[in-house]
Simulated scan of single mutants.
Amino acid sequence: MGKKRLNFWDAEYFIERKERITNLEFSKEFIDIASKKLERNFKSKTGIKSRGNVIIELPSAFFKDKFSYSSGDVSKIQWALILYDYFYPVEINWSSKSGRIYVPSDIDIEESDIIFWFEDLDAIKVHEILYPTIQNPLKLDSLHFDLNIKSMNQNLIIDIEPNIVGDLILLNIENMVIRVFQKWNEKALKDSNDKLGLGLIHSWSFHKENNLEIRVDMGSADVTVLKKLLLELDTLDTIKAINIE
């Protein structure tokens, strides 16, 4: 019987077996910190808590040609998540608050300094794999408008269709979106040690015709901010439908 892996990214299991994919050196300290922070980032972006059904894993040897690593202000590894038995390619990124460039073999890592995240993790795809019978990954019921979610990753387009076309109606919706996003970022900035794990929304912009289109770079923000936004918008009686992709 194989060793049971309890961590999101199991250092002992990984280090013992990584040679079939890469000769890049990894320290246990690096993986243990990455495991904690990436598990939090995964939950932040998908709303899903890993219970052993999601792990960072060594895929089969054919993946060797797809593996890549680059070091810099933002360092990157092309790697994989295993969602049950499904192989899901991901890009693991990390940087630091201090500007120090960490490499995977480092052992003297300041945990509060280093930041890990998954780049362009599609929450909708993850939900389809893990919970194929659940239609709404945001777990919101009884909204008065139609909600259609096609994809949910770092860069989103939120298209809001009003019941009645009008500049004041669109402006009212836009102001509510701004309030929700600004309040979220203000709270995240006050949480200097990241105890709440809120994350910052990097940017948002608006385009108005008959609908209100919002382009959002979610940055490191928790998916919960989308729930908060939708619940706030549900208090308005001027919205017919919202599409997210």
Rank of each mutant, 00 (worst) to 15 (best):
I158A: 02
L138V: 04
I160K: 05
I134M: 12
I101F: 00
L138I: 03
S151R: 11
H127T: 02
I124C: 03
I107H: 03
H127K: 04
D146G: 09
I129G: 10
N155K: 15
I124H: 04
N148H: 10
N136S: 09
H127V: 01
W94V: 02
N155C: 02
D167F: 10
T133D: 13
D141P: 01
P137N: 07
V165S: 14
F87V: 11
I101P: 04
K97F: 09
I114M: 03
S105A: 10
N136A: 05
V90A: 05
L83R: 12
Y86H: 13
I169G: 02
N172S: 15
L170W: 05
K97N: 13
E161R: 14
K125Y: 04
I173N: 12
F87C: 07
E111F: 07
I157D: 06
G99E: 07
E91D: 08
S98Q: 09
W117S: 13
L138M: 08
E128S: 14
P132Q: 09
I149V: 11
P89E: 11
N153I: 00
S142P: 01
S112F: 12
D106M: 06
S142Q: 13
E110H: 03
D141H: 12
Q154C: 03
S98M: 10
L143H: 07
P132I: 07
K150T: 07
V103Y: 07
L171D: 08
I164E: 15
R100I: 10
K150S: 13
L147Y: 06
I173W: 08
F118V: 08
S98Y: 14
L138A: 09
L170K: 14
D141I: 06
I160G: 04
P132C: 08
P132D: 04
V126D: 01
I157A: 09
I173H: 10
S142L: 12
K97W: 07
S151K: 11
K150C: 08
P89H: 12
I101W: 02
N163F: 15
N93R: 15
D122L: 05
I101M: 05
D106R: 00
P137Y: 07
G166N: 08
W117E: 15
Y84R: 14
H144R: 15
I164T: 12
Q135E: 14
I107Y: 03
E111P: 12
V103P: 00
K125D: 13
I101K: 13
L121K: 01
D146W: 06
I115Y: 07
K150P: 01
I115E: 14
E174D: 01
I92H: 03
E110I: 11
N163K: 14
W94Q: 08
S95E: 13
F87A: 01
I101G: 00
V126F: 03
I124V: 09
V103C: 02
I115M: 10
L140G: 06
N148M: 08
N148Q: 11
T133N: 12
D85L: 08
D113P: 11
